[in-house]
Simulated scan of single mutants.
Amino acid sequence: MSESSSANEGRTTPETVEILQQRRTIRKFADKPIEPNVVDAIEQAARQTATSESLSAWSVVRIKDPETRAEIARICGHARIARAPLLYVFLVDQHRNLRIAQELGVDPDGASLRSSNIFLQGYADAVLAVHATETAAEAFGLGAVILGSVHNDVPRIVELLHLPSNVFPVLGLGLGYPAKVPELKPRPPKEYQYFDDVYPDDAQTPSMVKALSQYDEDVHDYYERRNPDNPLQGFTSYVAALAQSKLVEQGHIFQSIEDQGFRID
């Protein structure tokens, strides 16, 4: 029997699964630096993330400059982000591979590395790397906040980080030792996220709002404890409000992707 098998004997749930099942977003970090060997171990773990076509079409910028941190925090709408001991921005990066192709005689204007398909592959690679980084960090007792809000102003992020063509910001990630650990946030019922063989016909659930009524209550109760002065009414009402908001139109995300040299067609 291997050492790893012996270590797992008598344990109901493997440690990594426990980490994932207890995942929380941490937005307030303790004023404590992360040890360099821990940072290196986290980054080495992320580098082993699965990658499509073996292209490793992602990279990361560590944000150390205080002014850049403050500006990213402003863009993301979270002032505390500037105080995260470790702040990353993960990127789709085909610039590196296009340089390789060009050096080997391939016309970069016609290279498929700029295609929408390859862009999406690189985007997925970057998301996987974020998740691997977060999980590795939590194994060391750190907390994390993932920042999709870097898309609030992509042109400014591009400018701040001096991103060349064919590089695009995907997610930010703040890491640090938690100053406070919130309670576990409720998630939708499993039967509405996991299906067997095919996506279920709508007739099987005539009213999704009724089907999620208990989840609505759970969400409301969670946010009432977290923010009693302005609790979220429930998941379904939140979805309806977001569906009619203009927020999704503000980022002009596809135009920003094309501005960075990718072909979205």
Rank of each mutant, 00 (worst) to 15 (best):
A126T: 08
A132F: 09
E138K: 09
G110R: 10
V127C: 03
V170H: 03
F140K: 12
P155R: 04
Y123M: 11
G174F: 07
L161M: 08
G105L: 12
H95S: 14
V145A: 12
G143F: 02
F119W: 10
I146Y: 12
Y123S: 10
D153I: 03
D125L: 06
D109T: 07
G141K: 10
V130F: 05
V170Q: 07
I146A: 09
V150C: 02
D153T: 11
G172H: 05
G141P: 04
L142S: 09
V130P: 00
I157L: 10
H162C: 03
A129W: 12
V106C: 10
I157Y: 01
D125K: 02
T133F: 11
V170M: 04
R99I: 14
T135F: 08
A144S: 15
I157V: 15
I100T: 15
R114V: 07
L98H: 13
R114A: 09
G105D: 07
A111K: 00
T133W: 09
A129Q: 07
N97H: 15
G143K: 07
A124K: 01
S116Q: 08
S116H: 14
V150H: 01
L163A: 02
N152P: 00
H95D: 13
L171T: 10
I146L: 14
G172A: 06
Q121L: 12
L113F: 14
S149N: 10
L173D: 02
L163F: 06
V130G: 02
V127T: 09
D107N: 15
G143W: 04
A136Y: 04
H151D: 05
L113C: 06
N166R: 12
S115T: 11
V170L: 01
A101W: 07
H131T: 13
I100K: 15
V167Q: 11
V167Y: 06
A132L: 12
R156T: 06
G105V: 07
V158C: 11
S165A: 14
L161C: 09
E134A: 13
N97W: 13
E103H: 13
A129L: 07
G110N: 15
L128N: 14
V145P: 01
G172L: 08
V145C: 13
L128D: 02
D93Q: 11
L161D: 13
L173E: 08
A126C: 09
Y123P: 02
P108S: 06
I100G: 00
G141F: 08
A101I: 01
E103M: 14
T135N: 13
A136D: 03
T133P: 00
Q121E: 04
S112G: 12
P108L: 04
L128Y: 10
L160Y: 02
T133A: 06
G143D: 13
A124S: 12
L120K: 03
V92C: 05
F119Q: 04
L171V: 01
P169I: 09
A126K: 01
E103C: 01
G105P: 03
G148A: 09
V106T: 15
V127E: 02
G110F: 05
V170D: 02
